[in-house]
Amino acid sequence: MDTEKKNKLRTFIKSYLQEHGDAGELKDDDSLFISARLDSLAMITLISFLEQTFGVNFGDVDFDVELIDSVNEIELFLDGG
């Protein structure tokens, strides 16, 4: 994933967190869902964003929350890791 795409992802997650009253720092390896920082409804918003922005088809994936639990894990997933 190039820097521009990663920045786009970071910006999306940060703005979602801010909209929901979380102004805390976001590190690339911070857990989003398993740590309960974001809930499952936020997960749906993130999945929709990834589908629309990066063209991912989650229907083809054996989905697990760990795949998209942090910026780094999303990067790894999008890069096919």
Partner: peptide, 19 residues
């Protein structure tokens, strides 16, 4: 309870239908 329903019913449906 909501998490259980989301994890076991909502997400599998959301990922596979009406994309």
């Amino acid at each position: 309870f909501k998490e259980l329903l989301v994890e076991f019913f909502f997400i599998p449906t959301f990922l596979r239908t009406f994309r």
